[in-house]
Structures are given as C-alpha cells and as structure tokens.
Amino acid sequence: MLPVPLSYSSILCPSSLVRNRASFRSRTQIAANYWGKKLAFMPHDVFDHLPPLLKELVLSGNQLRSFNWGRLYLLAWLELLDLGSNLLTTVPRMLSNCTQTLRFNLTRNQISKLTKDFLRDVTSLQYLDLSYTNLKNIQASSFLDSAFKHLWELWLSGNHFLCTCNARWFMWWNNQTTVYIPHLFTDVTCTSPKAHLGHCVVMVDLHSCELDYLGIGLYTFSTLITFLLLNLILKTGLHSRWRSGRVAA
C-alpha cells in the first residue's frame, strides 16, 4: 500500500481550483493532496485547472465512485496517481491512453475485473497496487508481458481469486513472473472453489486442470465414436430389413 506523502506544497480542493485557475497555472507546484476530503465526485474540468507540471496527485480516502480517466492526459508529468480507498468499480480501458504515471495505487476499491487492454502499451509503470479490490481473475490480455519490463512491484493481496481451470493462465503467470509481489504466499489466495479455499494461488496444481481437459476430450471422443457406431448399426439393420423384404416379395 502506498504511504501518503508527508509533505506537499499545499492542500487543494476542487472548488478552490476552479476559483483560482490563473494563480494555480502560475505556480510550479508538483503535488496536490485531496486525501480524506470525503469527495464523492470531482468537477469534470478539474484537470484543466491543476498545475500542468503536477507530479503527484493523491485522492485516496475519499468516496469517489467514478473517475474521469479521459482527462488525465492533461497531467503529462504525473508520476504518482493515488486513488486508494475509494468506491471505484472500473479501471481505464487502456491506461497508456490516459497517463504514463510511474506509480498507480488502486487499493481498497470495488473493482471486480480489469479491462481487456488495461496495461497494453504501458512502458513506464513501476509500481501498481491492486490489493483488496475484489478481483476474481486476471486475463492474459490485461497483463501483457511488455507492461512488466519496468514494473518492479505489484500488489495483489486480499482479492477474491477464483482458482478454477478457467483461471489457469493467471495461476501459471504467478508462478513464472519475475515481478515482486508482496505477500504472494500468504495473502494472494483462493476463495473458490472450496477445495482450494485459503490456498496460495501459486500452489494450485495446474496438472489437475490438464487431466480434467484430457478427460473431457476422451469423453467427447468416446461419445462421438459410440454415436457413429450406433448410427452405422441402425443403418445396417434397416438396410438388411429392406433387402429381406424385397427378397420375400
């Protein structure tokens, strides 16, 4: 979990930003802190009034249910975006289209899934916190290998991961990645099915999934063969009866 920075050049609020647009643009302020302000929303044009050289934007500890991802490009120098402890349910469709921030904190929100292209074309991200966000599974398309060239720390603790065969890619990825995942063996655990409840994601036996799929394949194949044989037998029987009938006539 990202620590809240201890000092900022000033503490801002959206209303003051709107009233003092000119004065803020003239400053060389590099950090803005909205932490714990009980914000339920942000004005649509708030990013137009933030200092253009802003490097740190802290919005954690609020009540935000949505976020205007499409306006983040206005903060071209942003290095830290902290949205932890809010009520967000979605992430940007494609993070690289919004920001090239180095540190991104989404801990303790209500995000049950990531978008298909979440980390596509991301080249600068170093720290990502997705802990305690109600994630159930992560697809391969959301975690492209190219996004992890610079990422050195990824938080996934406290989520509700489904350790079924449909999630085998994510379980395999956890075993293969070189990215540092804090508390991987203690807090990145399965909540379903019951057989794996509380087990570490990386300890789930993927071989059992391969056996399951092999069993399904064999069952399907044997069912198909049985159907073809029965069909052949029925056709042969009908043909024999037809010929017997003609001979008798």
Score class of each variant (00 low, 15 high):
Ala22Cys: 00
Tyr34Arg: 00
Ser15Lys: 00
Arg21Tyr: 00
Asn20Phe: 09
Arg27Ala: 06
Lys38Leu: 09
Asn33Gln: 11
Ser26Phe: 01
Lys37Gln: 14
Gln29Asp: 10
Val46Gly: 06
Ile30Thr: 05
Arg27Trp: 02
Pro14Ser: 13
Ala40Lys: 12
Leu39Cys: 13
Asn33Thr: 06
Phe24Gly: 01
Ala40Met: 07
Arg21His: 03
Phe24Ala: 00
Val18Phe: 03
Ser15Tyr: 08
Ser16Met: 10
Leu12Thr: 00
Ser15Cys: 13
Lys37Ser: 15
Tyr34Asn: 04
Ser16Asn: 11
Ser23Asp: 05
Arg19His: 03
Arg25Phe: 01
Lys37His: 12
Gln29Tyr: 04
Val46His: 07
Ser16Trp: 09
Asn33Ser: 06
Ile30Asp: 02
Ser16Leu: 10
Tyr34Glu: 03
Ser15Arg: 08
Met42Gln: 13
Trp35Asp: 03
Phe24Cys: 12
Tyr34Val: 02
Phe41Tyr: 09
Arg25Gly: 01
Ser23Ala: 05
Ser16Ile: 01
Ala31Arg: 00
Ser16Pro: 06
Val18Gln: 05
Val46Glu: 12
His44Val: 15
Ser15Ala: 15
Gly36Tyr: 02
Trp35Gln: 15
Thr28Leu: 04
Pro14Gln: 15
Arg25Ile: 00
Pro14Thr: 12
Gly36Ala: 11
Phe41Pro: 00
Tyr34Ala: 09
Val18Asn: 01
Arg27Asp: 00
Lys38Tyr: 14
Leu39Tyr: 14
Ala31Val: 05
Leu39Lys: 09
Ala32Gly: 10
Asp45Glu: 14
Ala31Leu: 13
Leu12Asp: 03
Asn33Met: 04
Phe24Arg: 00
Asp45Lys: 07
Asn33His: 06
Cys13Thr: 15
Ser15Glu: 07
Ala22Tyr: 02
Asp45Asn: 07
Ala32Glu: 08
Trp35His: 14
Asn20Ala: 06
Lys37Arg: 10
Gly36Val: 14
Trp35Phe: 15
Arg21Ile: 06
Ser16Val: 12
Arg25Glu: 03
Pro43Val: 12
Gly36Ile: 13
Ser16Tyr: 08
Val46Leu: 14
Ser26His: 05
Ala32Asp: 10
Asn20Trp: 04
Ala32Met: 13
Ala31Cys: 06
Phe41Val: 07
Ile30Asn: 02
Leu17Trp: 01
Gln29Ala: 03
Cys13Glu: 10
Ala31Pro: 04
Leu12Arg: 01
Arg19Asn: 08
Gly36Lys: 15
Ala22Gln: 09
Val18Lys: 04
Ser16Glu: 07
Leu12Cys: 14
Tyr34Trp: 11
Ile30Val: 11
Ala40Phe: 03
Met42Leu: 15
Ala22Val: 06
Ser26Leu: 11
Arg21Met: 07
Ser26Cys: 04
Leu12His: 04
Ala31Trp: 07
Lys38Met: 15
Arg25Trp: 00
